[in-house]
Every structure is written in C-alpha cells, then in structure tokens.
C-alpha cells in the first residue's frame, strides 16, 4: 500500500497524468508483492515474519525515495488530484445524489469491484481453483491445479489492489505523500477481511463500517466537541479491535492460510 501510494504519486507528479500514476502505482506494488511471493511460496519461509519485514522495508524505502527526490522542504509538493465525477441525472437528486454520485472514479470502481470479485471467487473455475489452493492444496494439486502458480497470482493480485488503495490516499484524498501515510490502514484492511468473513460483500460492509468511524471522527473534530481530538483519532483503531472480538468464532479463514505448500518428492 505504501509502495503504491508513493509510486502512484511519483507517477502522477512526473507524467502529470493521474491515470498513468495509478497504473505505475499498481505496477510498483505488484512487483513489491512479488518479493513476498518469492520468499514465502518458492523459498517457503514463514509468511508472518516475511510480511512484517517487508512492511518495515516499504516504510524505509518509501520515505528514503521521497526524501531523496524532494528533500525536506517546508512546502510539500502536491499534485492535481482525481476530480469528483458527477453521475448525470442521479447526481441531481438532492442530498442523496451529492453523497452517492459526486465521488471520484475510484470510489465507483471500488464498489463495482465488490460484485466482480465475488463473482470471480465463487462462480468461475479460476475462483474455485484459488479457493481450493487455500483450503486444501494437496487435493487441488492432485486434480492438477498448479498450487504455486495460483498462490503467486493471488499474492500479486493482492499487491496490485493494495497499491490501488495506496494510490487512492495520495492521488484522490490527500494529493501528497507523507512518511507512513497509510498509518496502519493495511492492517485494518486485514481486520476487515476477517470481519467480513472472507467474502467480498462482507468485506465491503466491514470497510464501510470503518469508513463511518473515520468520517464520524473527522466530522466530530470539525464540529469542535469537548472530546480531545486524540481520542477521536483512536476511534478506527478501537473499532478494529472491537470488531475482531465481535466476530469471534464466526469467521473461518481458509484452512491452509499461511501454510507453505510442499510437494512430495
């Protein structure tokens, strides 16, 4: 996500084109996730350790590259962000129209991707293979599903989508990059996957919930409540923990999650 955020920002900054920026951001984080794939799938190292270390690497790499290119100037460089897109007719509905149909392209895309990814996961051969590799790799292997290749595809797709998420922060929301701009959002997203019971529709609902918490927190700050702003900022993090406790026992991860697959010789 961090890598995507920076690469997307740089891409847009230098090409002056937001679309190209998105592509570059997605490609960069896809390549970065390839490292994750190589170490955990080919070398079969522990996925948790590799993930933690790659997060630290991304943190260092992005802030290094950003410093190297822009120095530590007082006025951070910014780019022209993705503009909100009004949907004709629907956008004219008072109130609801402004909320739902005055968003930027990526917001629509995100919501469109929910049924699309659900369809791919649950209705296509590819999705079935993908889930089989996660549930019972040995059985999948027996039936001729290339386990390692499927896992590579999954990791890279995950990376590309995270990169898109990172791009959203720099290209659509904040127009600039700062160190650790994601502030744990990648991990909140993992929590959303668990909370959404490993199902795209559930995940969409879960992320909406987190979005509401974040929006509420911003709005309360703007309204100037008595509550110190630090406590408002804590809200999404506390909600994540509460959500994880609430879903206990009802969310079952794929059986072979985080288990490297070793072919028998």
């Amino acid at each position: 996500m961090l890598v995507g955020a920076l690469a997307g920002f740089l891409g847009t900054f230098y090409t002056h084109h937001v679309g190209l920026g998105f592509l570059i951001g997605m490609a960069a984080s896809g390549v970065f996730s390839l490292i994750m794939g190589f170490i955990t799938i080919t070398l079969k190292r522990d996925q948790v350790i590799t993930g933690i270390i790659l997060n630290i690497l991304a943190l260092g790499l992005t802030s290094f590259v950003y410093r190297a290119l822009f120095g530590t100037s007082r006025t951070p460089p910014s780019i022209k962000p993705l503009t909100p897109l009004k949907v004709p007719i629907l956008g004219d509905i008072p109130y609801i129209g402004t909320i739902l149909f005055h968003q930027n392209l990526l917001v629509y895309l995100a919501f469109l991707l929910v049924p699309v990814s659900a369809w791919i996961l649950f209705k296509t051969q590819f999705g079935l293979n993908l889930r089989a590799v996660g549930e019972h790799p040995r059985a999948a292997d027996t039936l001729g599903v290339p386990v390692e290749r499927m896992r590579y595809i999954a990791v890279i797709l995950g990376g590309i989508f995270s990169g898109l998420g990172g791009c959203f922060l720099t290209l659509a929301q904040l127009n600039r990059f700062t160190d650790n701009i994601t502030a744990g959002r990648g991990f909140i997203a993992i929590a959303a996957v668990i909370f959404g019971k490993w199902n795209p529709y559930g995940v969409a609902l879960a992320t909406l919930l987190f979005g509401i918490a974040d929006g509420l927190q911003l709005r309360l700050q703007a309204l100037g409540t008595k509550l110190p702003y630090q406590f408002l900022l804590m809200l999404p993090y506390i909600l994540t923990i509460v959500a994880l406790v609430g879903i206990v026992g009802k969310s079952k991860p794929p059986a072979a999650l985080a288990v490297p697959y070793q072919k028998d010789n």
Binding site: V48, I52, A183, G184, F187, I188, I190, A191, I194, P228, Q230, F231, L233, M234, Y237, I238, T240, I241, L244, V245, V248, G249
Partner: peptide
C-alpha cells in the same frame, strides 16, 4: 483477547500502538 477469543494478535497489537501513541500525545 487471543487466548479467550482467538483474536489475531498481530492486528490488535498494532492497533494498540496507535492508541498508546495518541494517548501519550493527549
């Protein structure tokens, strides 16, 4: 939370970081 309900500690410990840092800030 992990032993009582099996909540993933990677996520909760990380969330607790942000809560603690914001708390100190306050």
């Amino acid at each position: 939370l992990k032993i009582r309900w099996g909540v993933n500690e990677i996520i909760t410990t990380l969330m607790m970081n942000y809560i603690a840092i914001l708390g100190i800030n306050y």
